[in-house]
């Protein structure tokens, strides 16, 4: 599905992403984790075409997508959410999502269908779909959901979800995690999920990729990664035992 090879991004003399390589199979959920500033969002920006890589290759279903603009990559079936939500504030909630349904799919639906699909996507994430719903009325959690609904409305094959849960409470968080798993199950979407809340992430991902200073320091199934001394040292720290318990509860 996705094959990233020696992907590198330099900002001036600073290397934010350094020779990152990984493969992703269709229908997989990959957890992309690592400390703050380790290059996770930058990796997303590179895959989604928001930034051009300094070197490396990104193949989506065998096709090289490096160099293509973000809007074309969206048409190839890649959708992403932004870590800091970027809603269209002066448009209504439905309009925000309808634009994604209208412009984001390979075959453009009619205006009416775009709005109908937008309402479906909003229902999926539990957001109000009335015409009168405004972006200003949404809290932090609502904005995260809107990001997700907007991305889903493009009917992607690959979803890049960047910290969708920060700001949600415990139950909402688990609901959202279950929702990603359900979306994967229903639509067969492949997902890369960036998340600092390990309790939620480790419960549903198939595999983890751990970045530190832009480099891959570990990758593998959650139980392996949670016990990896390097990962514990740079990232999990004192939470390691909780994370290991989460993983154990899941496999057990």
């Amino acid at each position: 599905m996705l094959s990233v090879s020696r992907l590198t991004k330099r900002f001036g003399g600073f290397t934010a992403v350094n020779e990152v390589s990984f493969e992703l199979a269709r229908g997989e959920i990959l957890g992309l984790i690592g400390p703050n500033g380790s290059g996770k969002s930058t990796t997303f920006n590179l895959i989604a075409g928001a930034l051009a890589p300094s070197a490396g290759s990104i193949r989506l279903q065998g096709r090289e997508i490096v160099g293509e603009p973000a809007n074309r990559i969206a048409h190839h079936g890649v959708a992403r959410t932004f870590q800091i939500p970027r809603p269209f504030r002066r448009l209504s909630v439905v309009e925000n999502v309808a634009l994604a349904a209208y412009y984001g799919q390979q075959e453009r639906p009619s205006r009416e269908n775009a709005f109908a699909q937008a309402r479906e996507a909003l229902a999926l994430v539990n957001l109000p779909a009335e015409d009168s719903a405004r972006v200003d009325g949404l809290g932090a959690a609502g904005l995260k959901k809107l990001e997700l609904a907007r991305a889903l409305a493009t009917r992607p094959q690959l979803l890049l979800a960047d910290e969708s849960l920060g700001g949600l409470d415990e139950t909402e968080m688990h609901q959202a995690a279950d929702m990603l798993a359900a979306i994967r199950a229903q639509r067969g979407i492949t997902i890369i999920w960036v998340e600092h809340i390990m309790g939620a992430l480790m419960r549903i991902v198939d595999r983890c990729l751990v970045l530190d200073h832009g480099e891959v320091i570990a990758q593998g199934p959650p139980q392996e990664v949670a016990h990896d001394p390097k990962v514990i040292e740079v990232y999990l720290g004192s939470d390691a035992e909780d994370v290991q318990a989460t993983v154990a509860a899941r496999t057990g």
């Binding site: 989604a48 075409g49 928001a50 603009p69 973000a70 809007n71 969206a74 048409h75 959708a79 992403r80 932004f82 970027r86 809603p87 269209f88 504030r89 002066r90 448009l91 309009e95 925000n96 309808a98 634009l99 994604a100 209208y102 412009y103 984001g104 799919q105 205006r111 775009a114 907007r150 991305a151 409305a153 493009t154």
Partner: peptide, 21 residues
Amino acid sequence: MSRLALEAISQEEDAAASIGM
């Protein structure tokens, strides 16, 4: 729809591009 799209673009250009505009 173009008018909505352009309003979106004038507010968040990167987000607009990310959904295929």
